[in-house]
Nucleic acid binder design. Structure first.
Length: 188
DNA sequence: GGCCCGATCGTCT
DNA sequence: GACGATCGGGCCA
């Protein structure tokens, strides 16, 4: 019987952030371009950013600016920001409205599992064509959505988050999750 | 207005 | 392992 991918409902994202992060591993992130073509990849690496008490999170201590406004939306919206003046990072907003938490999508496995064109948060945005224009969108299409996959990860590993040395103890929190069996993970 | 620095990546040694 | 690119965000004045 053929596997028919099913689009995830918004309630999937409106749960506890760490649980959503783990559950996202193995699912398909899909983006439709203006010309109608769809680019997609299997999520193999994510990081949880758990809100106002997380010193690594953009909304630490309720920081709220035009950039982070999308994080205050209800779970199931996108949050895309520019980093180092040249790379975009795509996040899935989690939990409820006014609970500014999110999951950073760090790597996708493409059709060729050894293709590393989407192995990193900046690289996957470039590959999918995602920019800050795509921040604050609902993840129920037509532009961006996430659907089920018939390829579930065998082992989900956890580790420290990348690039958050400024965050004190929080730099050591094991909030990065990845598919141990994928060659498309950004770092081991 | 000014200053510092970043949830990265590619290149070079 | 080190470093530069490149520019907006965040914070202070």
């Amino acid at each position: 019987m053929k596997f028919v991918p099913k689009k995830l409902p918004l309630v999937f994202f409106q749960r506890e952030t760490i649980q959503v992060a783990r559950d996202l591993i193995g699912l398909q992130l899909c983006v439709r371009s203006n010309d109608g073509s769809v680019r997609q990849g299997r999520i193999v690496e994510v990081e949880a950013y758990i809100g106002v008490e997380d010193p690594a999170c953009h909304t630490y201590l309720h920081r709220r600016t035009s950039r982070t406004e999308a994080m205050y939306l209800s779970g199931g919206h996108s949050y895309v920001y520019l980093i180092y003046g040249m790379h975009n990072c795509f996040n899935v907003v989690t939990a409820g409205e006014g609970e500014p938490e999110a999951v950073l999508i760090r790597a996708l496995e493409l059709e060729d599992p050894h293709d590393r064109a989407a192995a990193g948060p900046g690289k996957l945005c470039r590959h999918l064509g995602l920019t800050r224009e795509d921040s604050g969108l609902l993840l129920e299409g037509p532009r961006i959505w996430i659907c089920e996959s018939d390829h579930r990860p065998l082992v989900i590993a956890s580790a420290e988050r990348v690039g958050v040395d400024y965050a004190g103890d929080a730099a050591f929190w094991p909030l990065r999750f990845f598919d141990e069996g994928s060659a498309a993970v950004s770092r081991r």
